[in-house]
C-alpha cells in the first residue's frame, strides 16, 4: 500500500500537493530516464530525500515553485522541475538536479506531484506511483524526513558553515528546535535566490 500524503499550502489552496516518500528504491535509473525523456506521464518532482532537511524545507521549495509558476516566472521547464530548482542555493539548473534530484544511485526518494489540474487526484497519483516506483513506501512526515537527512552534505551544499554560528557552536545542533540554526538560514537562502 502506497502511503500518500495530501498537503495544501496556506494561501495556495487551489493546488494541493501529493507527497510520497520511498526507501530502498530499486529503479532509480528508470525513473530518472523518464524525466530525461520528458515523459509527460512522469511529471513529478523526484527528490533525493537525503538532501531534505525537514518538512518545512520541502514545503518552502514547493511554495517558491508554485508561487513563481502562478506569477509566470518559472526558470525551468515546469512547476515540478522548479521545485527541484528552488531547493538549490544558486541559479544553476543542471547542478540543482544533480544535487537535489533523483540520480541513478538514489535509494531514498520523495515524489511530489502538484495538482495542476483536476484530473490528478490522490488516487490517480497513488496508483501511478505504485505501478512504476519499485520501493518501500514510508509515510511522509517531518520526522521521517529529518531521520533520513544527510546533515553534513546539506550543510556543505548551502555553505551553512560549522553550526550556523561560531560562538553558539554547541547550541542548536540538535535540530529539534523549530527554525533555529541551519533550517532558518536555509529557508532564507532559498527565499532570496534570484534576487
Amino acid at each position: 500500500m502506497e502511503e500518500l500524503v495530501t498537503l495544501t499550502l496556506p494561501h495556495l489552496p487551489l493546488h494541493p500537493l501529493f507527497l510520497s516518500l520511498f526507501t530502498n528504491l530499486e529503479n532509480a535509473s528508470f525513473l530518472r530516464q523518464q524525466l530525461l525523456d520528458g515523459n509527460q506521464e512522469f511529471e513529478y518532482a523526484f527528490l533525493d530525500a537525503r538532501m531534505l532537511l525537514s518538512e518545512n524545507h520541502v514545503l518552502a521549495a514547493c511554495f517558491r515553485a508554485l508561487n513563481d509558476w502562478q506569477r509566470g516566472r518559472l526558470r525551468s521547464r515546469n512547476v515540478h522541475s522548479e521545485i527541484v530548482f528552488s531547493l538549490s542555493p544558486n541559479n544553476n539548473i543542471a547542478e540543482s538536479f544533480r544535487r537535489f534530484g533523483i540520480s541513478d544511485t538514489t535509494t531514498d526518494l520523495l515524489a511530489i506531484k502538484v495538482s495542476t489540474s483536476s484530473e490528478f487526484t490522490a488516487e490517480s497519483v497513488r496508483t501511478h506511483l505504485s505501478q512504476h516506483v519499485q520501493a518501500d513506501s514510508v509515510l511522509f512526515s517531518d520526522e521521517a524526513i529529518r531521520r533520513g537527512a544527510d546533515l553534513a552534505r546539506i550543510r556543505k551544499v548551502y555553505k551553512a558553515g560549522g553550526d550556523g554560528g561560531k560562538v553558539n557552536g554547541a547550541a542548536g545542533t540538535g535540530g529539534g528546535a523549530a527554525l533555529d540554526g541551519v533550517e532558518g538560514f536555509i529557508l532564507g537562502t532559498m527565499a532570496l535566490k534570484g534576487s
Partner: peptide, 11 residues
Amino acid sequence: REGVSVPAVLG
C-alpha cells in the same frame, strides 16, 4: 547564518 538570535525569513 552567524547565529544571531533573529527570526528566520520564510519567503
